[in-house]
Computed example of a mutant assay.
Amino acid sequence: MRKEIIRQELNKNGSLNEPFFFMISYDLSRYEIYKLNELPNDIKFELSKNSNFKSLEKIALSKFPIDYSAYKKAFTSIQNHIKEGNSYLLNLTFKTKIDTSLSLDEIYKKAQALFKLKYKDEFVCFSPEKFIEIKKDKIYTYPMKGTIDAKVPNAQAKILRDTKEMAEHTMVVDLLRNDLSIVSSKVRVDKFRYCDKINAGEKELLQISSKISGELKKDWHKNIGDILTSLLPAGSITGTPKKKTVQILDEIENYKRDYYTGIAGIYDGTSLYSFVLIRFIEKIEDIYYYKSGGGITCDSNINLEYEELQDKIYIPS
């Protein structure tokens, strides 16, 4: 089983206390693990501690999103599953054809984000969302759920008091708190629902995150594979309950996420940093597709969700 192979290989690399890069697809069907000093030239990545990037250049792209009627069909199916009690929160995603004059290499060079990754000639990702960090025997995760245009009057106050957004974010925090409890002890929510401003091309978005932590045993380096595979796929890009929600999404989305909404990161010999692979452009037979989506609950407004799907299609510069 591929999950077991990934688990064992990550554990082996962590036991060596030698820096390595890792990348795992959404369904754990694909992965890459390399010692940092042996990383192939066709895999590029950057990590940054700066989340307040200034927009110096607007990168134009044309979007050809899924037809509204097709989106409505999927949205309605999601709502039916929620009414039947099969799930309470589902992160519905689609791929959107885009046109841009830039190559994947050019997009990678120009994009500004906490995490950037270019994988061969297949895709480029510029993610604002951390998955887990492990530092000084503590594990942290930062679920990101809730988005609003920063230009909306009183945007921060509006999204923080929105009932639907509160419910959606609370469910993800509860899911990830439970996930961390599988691999760590003394799990707590350190910070609940704080705002980050995200450069989104022609717009600025406010996105809501929380910070959750737990304590690990000192030999966690030997168990990196157990930790990561126990937490995947990420709760923020699936929903709750996770297992049933993943099954529903597989049926409704009708396309393969592949590395989109998987994770990537590095272990530097003492600490581990990882990110969710969102804000994602994939090249398929010389056509570019941007994969994006958002969380759906019983209180979701279809028009706002359809708009959010498109708002998340941008190249931050």
Rank of each mutant, 00 (worst) to 15 (best):
163 T>I: 13
154 N>Q: 11
166 M>S: 15
154 N>M: 08
145 K>C: 10
166 M>I: 13
145 K>F: 03
153 P>K: 13
154 N>P: 00
165 E>H: 07
144 M>S: 04
150 A>K: 07
162 D>W: 00
157 A>Y: 15
137 D>K: 13
150 A>I: 07
138 K>V: 11
154 N>W: 08
163 T>P: 12
155 A>Q: 04
163 T>N: 12
161 R>V: 15
159 I>C: 00
149 D>W: 08
168 E>H: 06
161 R>W: 10
147 T>K: 00
142 Y>K: 05
147 T>C: 03
161 R>S: 15
152 V>N: 11
143 P>V: 10
150 A>V: 05
156 Q>W: 04
161 R>M: 15
145 K>Y: 04
168 E>I: 09
155 A>C: 05
152 V>D: 06
139 I>M: 03
166 M>Y: 14
138 K>G: 01
162 D>R: 04
138 K>S: 13
142 Y>G: 02
160 L>E: 08
138 K>I: 05
152 V>K: 15
137 D>N: 15
149 D>Y: 05
169 H>K: 02
160 L>V: 09
155 A>E: 01
142 Y>E: 10
148 I>W: 03
141 T>W: 09
143 P>C: 04
155 A>T: 05
152 V>I: 15
150 A>Q: 03
153 P>Y: 02
144 M>A: 12
166 M>P: 05
162 D>K: 06
165 E>L: 05
143 P>E: 06
168 E>C: 14
146 G>R: 01
161 R>Q: 15
145 K>D: 03
157 A>W: 13
139 I>A: 03
160 L>S: 12
150 A>F: 04
152 V>S: 10
143 P>I: 01
138 K>D: 04
151 K>F: 10
159 I>Y: 00
144 M>Y: 10
139 I>V: 11
141 T>E: 11
154 N>R: 10
161 R>T: 15
158 K>W: 10
161 R>H: 11
166 M>C: 12
140 Y>C: 02
160 L>P: 03
156 Q>S: 13
158 K>P: 11
151 K>G: 08
139 I>T: 07
164 K>Q: 01
144 M>V: 06
157 A>C: 14
147 T>S: 03
141 T>R: 02
169 H>W: 08
156 Q>L: 04
167 A>K: 14
143 P>W: 07
153 P>D: 10
139 I>L: 05
162 D>Y: 02
159 I>W: 00
156 Q>F: 06
151 K>R: 10
